[in-house]
Design a protein around this nucleic acid. Structure first.
Lengths: 213, 213, 213, 213
DNA sequence: GATGAATGAGCCTTCATTCAT
DNA sequence: GATGAATGAAGGCTCATTCAT
């Protein structure tokens, strides 16, 4: 007889945690943050509710870590997109925009859970701290690219405001894909954002510009 | 036996309801929707929790009517602003924008409560129906004014997208006044919106245009 | 002008009380004793719940007086029936039996309410006292008539037991008309009682006897 | 901070359920069905009220299962008595009757709880369904034995009515042992039933018959 | 008399948390 | 690691009762 294969732990610590976090996201999306209980999360993950406490100490912590997880994934996603783009600011900005419309990551479930956190965030300081650093970086990348582009294209605009309009339009169409009873398509959402970029930076994103569509 | 608290004067039905709704808004703003209980609302209004049930039947109904109240007030507010503006589309659009930045109505408390509802709305169909009609009218007024302006100014743009960018920018800076740890000023928020309008409709809102600032 | 007719009080005290008691019986029959509230009684009577308290002081008293009312009506009913019967014991016993099957008085509603009180009576001494005296008289009349009949007919039986069997059979078929999912007819119930009487007192109630059917 | 109460030993699921059902019966007997609360049941069982919900989901279910438990125990009791009796119908009927007067099972507490359910049953369809099947079997056994006896003894009677009279007399003396302020003895109750049987089936239960007393 | 606004005790139920197994 | 029995705080809701009008 050979040495038997070492018996694996049923699930490694980090793997279990991620599994539970994904069950949490799924539960929030389906039932809302207010209706999300430890039991509902445990049921979605197929484990006992005691185990959820075992890994996360408390419900508060579970939710905080879930929010941080989502925030971190989001950041890595757009950072990677920018890194893989060309060096020109318009290329990097386009990559950033397109990354926000990645169907594979930003599913209905993901966005719904995200909104649930937003609604409670202002009355739960803990939540704000989970995503604060990433939110700051997100705001900054828009301002940086916008300033570079304004400088490169000689746009006579306040780049901070342009960055803000573009960012808010992206976030806005996100939200609208949730809340509207009859939302427009994801493609129309993207086109709206590109139209916005084209208005702000016509030489680069406007009709006939290098990255126009 | 303790002396019972002095019995309060009766209040008229509609007055009590409004009082309770305002206590609800205040409570949601302070504690979040999830932490809002009948008792916390009652305490904020200075009445017993039984009375809240007496007037609204259930917590669900109280929240639904609160949302509808806010939605109705919002609609009447911008409708009035437009009616009192001049006839030109740029005048009416400006009035609409400015009405959204009315300090007297849109207090921190109000906006925070508003966000709380947003977060739960997607998992509570009841909430969506409370503001649905008003939301539709709000979207429409932007599209109408945008189309009139595009036609009047000969802008070669898709007016629907312009309307959306403008509207989402307004909503976005609203939200940002809540969520940012270090928000910009309300004035900067308004200027961002006017900058956005100036980019979309330069002849009317741009620098040197009739309604520029 | 003539003297105007004296303005009647809206409802005399005793009339109001009876009206409320009847509303109580009706409510108990429809919703059960446990689900009977002052409000449900008031609604059934078309008045405010405050008025019910005004007339009966408390819910406890309302229920106690309702039970007493039913008990008194029952007693007067069978007493009247016996008084109007002939002088012979078998005539009076038959009148008693038949009076218990009076469709006009003992409606489904009445019997259902009656049962509701029975169920709670043992844990509410107040209830027992309401009908105690009448119950005693009811038991006694059976024993009296049974003894007279046993003596008159020369039956070699213990008349107390015969009285009990007859009385319990009557009460039993009453209950059975309530509880059975598929009850027999009221006529069959009466025939069962007469069959019982015929077995106990064959000369008088048996086949061919003077009051056989 | 107080020292928390020592955590009790776990009890097996079925054992706990039975323990809670018995606490429920006891509580109903003492306080009546209407006054029976989850807390009173939990207190009687020496556990927290949360545990009652944990095992029975709701108060409604707890009561329904309690009724079913009582109904099932009753049925098994008389079925066993009949099985262990001799083959003759009079022997089996006597065993049935005697089993209904078993002091060990049919305590004051048990009967009082039973009555509480009766009172509410008509307004709670759920209750009727819990005991319906057993009630049917109970009625049937009386009819079967009565018919066999009528045939064997050549009684010129309608056996269905005889069965009913006998059964109702048994139930009646049961009830009377509860409701009467001054009840007769249990022995007198049994003798009344036997007297009834003797009147209906004189050759078998009458004076001098094979099972007379 | 009559109404119904207002209170508050007490109910059922949920659920985060603890902990024996 | 993992389960689930057990607890108890807290919430929504009911409803008898009080009392100003």
């Amino acid at each position: 007889m050979d040495t038997p294969a070492p018996r694996r732990r049923k699930a490694s610590r980090s793997h279990r945690r991620e599994q539970l976090i994904e069950a949490t996201i799924s539960t929030i999306a389906q039932r809302g943050l207010a209706q999300t209980t430890l039991s509902s999360v445990a049921r979605a993950a197929g484990v006992s509710h005691g185990l959820v406490i075992f890994y996360f100490e408390s419900k508060e912590r579970l939710l905080a870590e879930t929010l941080r997880f989502m925030s971190d994934v989001h950041r890595r996603h757009w950072e990677t997109a920018i890194e893989q783009a060309g060096p020109a600011p318009e290329e990097r900005l386009l990559a950033l925009i397109l990354s926000e419309f990645d169907d594979a990551l930003y599913t209905q479930e993901w966005l719904t859970a995200w909104c649930g956190f937003w609604g409670e965030a202002q009355s739960r300081p803990l939540y704000l701290t989970q995503s604060g650093e990433n939110d700051r970086a997100y705001i900054e990348i828009f301002e940086t690219l916008s300033a570079e582009l304004a400088h490169a294209g000689g746009y006579p605009i306040e780049p901070g405001r342009a960055a803000r309009v573009l960012r808010l339009t992206i976030e806005g169409v996100w939200l609208e894909l949730m809340f509207s009873a009859k939302p427009y398509s994801r493609e129309e959402a993207l086109n709206t954002v590109l139209f916005c970029a084209g208005t702000l930076f016509p030489h680069h994103f406007g009709p006939g510009g290098p990255v126009s569509r």
